[in-house]
Computed example of a mutant assay.
Amino acid sequence: MPFPIVRKNGIPLYIQVKEAVLAEIKNGRWKTGDKLPTERELSEKLKVSRNTVSQAYQELEAEGVLMSVQGRGTFVCDRDDAVRIENRKDLLMKIIDVAMEEGLQLGFSIEEFVELTNLRARQKMELLNQVRVCFIECNREQVEYFAKRLEFGSGISITPIVLDDLRDNMDQFLPILTAADLLITTFFHYEEVKELLGQRKNVLAIALDPQMETIVRIARIPAGKRVGLVCRSDNFASKVLLALKTAGLDGMDIKVSHESDPDRLREFVANLDVIIVSPGRRREVEAFATRRHDIIEFVFTPDVASINLLRAALIDIRRQ
């Protein structure tokens, strides 16, 4: 690549990698159908972590710039097609058109197609309402946020389980785990969860990444600002600091507090300019913040591939 990745310039590394890949495509060095370097090859060439390259590739794939083919690699998409299919709704409309055409060829009318489509959608929604999912993670902030906010379908019940609680009280959680249709954890804890549960249940591993908006806001914090992190656990704080290091933002001096006492929390907040908060603690911090404070909620969310994998797994559960 003609330009290096610049560290410590406030721009997350994966965004720089993404822009570098786009530049190679725009200047014609990588053309439609060309196979890109593997994540390992590009990470070694640019001297960044493989996770950084993976995050850049995933975003470009979600935007229709790249396409991953299982077992073959990552390729440059046809840009004309990417322009025509501007978003997921356009792509879905094309899929519906194909299904409708095939229905007509089978002898169904458009009215019958609409009726059967509505019937099938209602059936799927009813099935999803019965799905029971357990999400197992090592920090309470992430597991509670996931259970409350993430939607895989209408009415799906997600039970949060903290890994430490599971280790200490396996007998207590066993009925819940046995009744669950699907157990989810992160790649980081997959082997441990599998070992704890043995052959009781299949476990699905997903990847959780920080929201890009969160990383960008932190990258734009002016030098000299006093920055703090308010969360509930050392584990969550470690994950935040690791995520910032991966994005090339590890040079920041961030003070960490797990304080729950109101007076001590007020004192901690008063000595900061920017407060990074875990999900669930924003309101506590806002109660003591002033107009000069900038509050940034640090949220981890499943990547696009994990979301699609989960949705497919949930549908497959109810086919059995």
Rank of each mutant, 00 (worst) to 15 (best):
Q130C: 03
V274T: 07
D171T: 01
V143H: 11
P302N: 12
S68Q: 11
L196A: 14
Q123E: 07
D303C: 06
L241A: 13
D90Q: 12
T74W: 11
A289H: 05
E115G: 02
F108C: 07
L60A: 09
E267L: 13
V304L: 12
V98P: 00
L128V: 02
I206Q: 12
V274I: 03
E41I: 12
M125H: 06
V114I: 09
N271P: 00
A312E: 15
A180L: 04
N9H: 10
S154F: 05
E24K: 14
C134Q: 07
G155R: 02
R84E: 04
A62Y: 11
I275G: 07
S157T: 11
Q130I: 00
V76C: 14
L310A: 06
S49P: 03
D34M: 05
V203S: 14
R122F: 00
E259A: 05
H189W: 07
I315T: 12
T159E: 08
V285I: 02
N202L: 07
D263Q: 08
P2H: 10
V193R: 15
E141M: 08
F135K: 13
E191L: 06
D34I: 00
G73V: 01
A147L: 01
E61I: 01
G10R: 15
E115N: 03
T74C: 05
L116Q: 04
A287H: 13
V285T: 04
L242N: 14
V193T: 06
Q123D: 05
I307V: 02
S233Y: 04
C134H: 05
D80Q: 12
K31T: 03
V114T: 10
S154H: 11
D171P: 04
L197N: 08
L150I: 11
R311M: 00
R122I: 00
M67E: 12
R84F: 08
L119V: 00
L13E: 09
V65I: 08
M212L: 05
E144F: 03
W30L: 13
Q142C: 06
Q320Y: 01
K8G: 03
L249Q: 15
H293Y: 02
F113L: 13
M1S: 14
K8R: 07
T38N: 15
A23W: 14
E151C: 01
D90R: 12
L91W: 10
Q16D: 01
V114C: 07
L60V: 06
E102W: 02
P222D: 08
V65A: 09
E44I: 03
E39N: 11
F300R: 10
R88V: 02
I11R: 15
L119R: 04
Y14A: 03
I156M: 09
G228C: 11
V98S: 06
I206P: 05
D263I: 02
D34Y: 06
F152C: 05
I156Q: 13
L229I: 10
M93I: 07
M67T: 05
L106V: 04
S157N: 15
P302T: 06
L163V: 01
